[in-house]
């Protein structure tokens, strides 16, 4: 259930918004008939404030404010279970993605800054080294979140067990990865 603050947000529909998300995600959100199979299969649904099937209805209606304030799209881990099961062949994860992108494009704080930062650190390491590097990711994220002290013992334990490499693994032709990033950026990706 949406928290009270979110429910108090204007419930005015914006008919122009559904096509925006449909184009951005490449999914026909309109086909959703609200069966709830995605919600039933989503491992994160219990933690979500707006369940995947409800989010689809909210996008159809154009409840832009409420959807952009929902934390659910940030909790989505892109496991694609929903996409596999949807009787209408909708890839809900892509819709979640499109909603996140729309939130970033609008500027201002996103509902879950921490998750946003985590994603950004992840992409930074990929951009730098060509593949993810947990050391830099966790150190940077921890530092930015101001929780280095709490996280240090865990990091140390992981390192001792060889689960957290200090030295990154560079791939060859890193320049091409960077080119990819640039191309995505030019197309409006964030």
């Amino acid at each position: 259930m949406l928290p009270r603050e979110a429910r108090a947000l204007p419930g005015r529909t914006d008919p122009a918004w559904a096509p925006v998300i449909e184009t951005a995600s490449g999914e026909r959100v309109g086909l959703c008939f609200g069966c709830g199979i995605c919600t039933g299969s989503c491992p994160l649904a219990p933690a979500m404030d707006m369940l995947p099937s409800r989010l689809m209805k909210a996008v159809q209606l154009g409840l832009k404010e409420r959807v952009l304030k929902a934390t659910a799209p940030y909790l989505c881990v892109g496991c694609e279970t929903c996409a596999v099961r949807c009787p209408n062949g909708i890839d809900v994860a892509r819709v979640m993605d499109a909603v996140r992108q729309a939130g970033l494009a609008r500027g201002g704080p996103v509902p879950r800054v921490d998750i946003q930062r985590f994603h950004q650190w992840f992409l930074r390491t990929v951009r730098l080294f060509g593949r993810a590097h947990e050391g830099l990711l966790s150190a940077g994220f921890s530092l930015q979140q101001g929780r280095l002290r709490e996280d240090l013992p865990t990091g140390w334990a992981l390192m001792r067990h060889g689960r957290l490499a200090l030295w990154p693994h560079f791939i060859r032709r890193r320049r091409e990865v960077r080119r990819l990033f640039r191309a995505i950026g030019q197309r409006g990706g964030r």
Partner: peptide, 14 residues
Amino acid sequence: VTLEVPGLGSVTET
């Protein structure tokens, strides 16, 4: 038109 949509709260459409 204002109505209650399950799980989404009250919704207003003109």
